[in-house]
């Protein structure tokens, strides 16, 4: 997708349209009402920039934004700020994840300014996994802010041009604010209300946990609609291919917060080619989710199966022929038309 006002160099920001918060492509696509696709980009355990670009390239032409995770699962990797710096350099549209686990309010606000200066237009505010679940269980958990107060903090930086302390920011970070929600974890009645709370704190889009339980997700969406949240916030439903019945079973028992219904596991177990079936299932889920009122897109988390994302999105048909921007493509076409 190429906008009319594309900058000549892709690493320059787009003009901020009236009513928009950021100069980013993701906000453009969301606000245009197009079915939006984002994907999780796993950071490398390396200082080689090429590894980041190689991981990003597999999504070229299929995603509108990529989440640069921030020590997800409390494991140490390249930082989300570092990844975003590399990605924005060539014009990608990363969603910078910020977890409250590792940094206090001083470090976080500094990172937000730094990231925005490097062209990051989207920030996803998370509480983060506990240190106990990662490779450094002996680390000190920070949790100075939580996802909600983090949202409010960044919104204050952007809209009031102020740090949490009240000190003035001369050029505010123009970012679109996102948050996460898990409709599949108790207390279920609280989940939609918690999204409303996040929207009140500044969230403009929500990426959800993996959706395998469509009926529960539909209830959640209906609650959001009744709360009037959908007018103020874009919902991207979380999806991802399951590699096998065994993998699914393992995730269900070992990763807290991911709910995979028995029927899904049964279906995978019964298939001759489980990996293929996992992809097929993911495609069907995306198609089903697209039909639900208020779903603006999907967020694909294909951990260690990133190479399948392009095929899944392609076969699901949700882009309807639209080709999201990627480095090189927009540039060439624009030059042609110029």
């Amino acid at each position: 997708m190429i906008f009319e006002d594309e900058p000549l160099d892709p690493w320059h920001p787009l003009p901020i349209l009236p009513g928009h918060s950021s100069p980013g492509r993701l906000e453009r696509v969301l606000r245009a009402g197009r079915f939006t696709v984002t994907a999780e980009l796993a950071p490398p355990d390396s200082a080689d920039p090429e590894e980041v670009y190689a991981r990003a390239r597999v999504f070229d032409g299929y995603v509108d934004g990529m989440n640069a995770t921030d020590g997800s699962g409390a494991n140490c990797h390249m930082s989300s700020v570092g990844m975003c710096a590399l990605l924005t350099r060539v014009g990608y549209s990363p969603v910078m994840q910020i977890s409250c686990r590792d940094k206090n309010r001083i470090a976080i606000q500094g990172d937000v300014l730094g990231a925005a200066a490097m062209g990051v237009s989207n920030v996803l505010c998370l509480s983060g996994d506990g240190v106990q679940s990662g490779d450094h269980p002996d680390a000190k958990p920070v949790f100075d802010l939580d996802s909600m107060s983090l949202l409010e903090t960044v919104r204050g930086m952007r809209d009031e041009c102020q740090f949490l302390s009240g000190r003035t920011i001369t050029a505010p970070p123009r970012v679109l604010l996102g948050a996460a929600e898990n409709p599949f974890a108790p207390p279920y009645d609280f989940r939609a209300l918690r999204v409303a709370k996040k929207v009140a704190a500044g969230a403009q889009f929500i990426q959800t946990q993996y959706c395998y339980d469509i009926p529960r997700f539909k209830t959640f969406m209906a609650q959001l609609r009744d709360l009037g949240v959908l007018e103020h916030c874009y919902i991207l439903a979380g999806v991802g291919p399951l590699a096998s019945a065994r993998a699914a079973e393992w995730i269900r028992t070992h990763v807290p917060g991911i709910d995979i219904p028995d029927a899904v596991i049964k279906r995978l177990a019964g298939a001759a080619k489980q990996k293929q079936e996992g992809k097929q299932l993911c495609i069907e889920l995306i198609q089903e989710l697209r039909e639900i009122e208020g779903v603006s897109g999907v967020h694909v988390m294909a951990y260690r199966q990133e190479e399948t994302v392009a095929e899944i999105i392609d076969r699901s048909g949700v882009l309807q022929g639209r080709e999201p921007w990627f480095p090189g493509r927009g540039h060439e076409l624009q030059k042609e038309s110029a």
Partner: peptide, 9 residues
């Protein structure tokens, strides 16, 4: 957390 449950419940 001061504002609600995490996603890992």
């Amino acid at each position: 957390l001061r504002n609600g449950p995490c996603g890992g419940v």
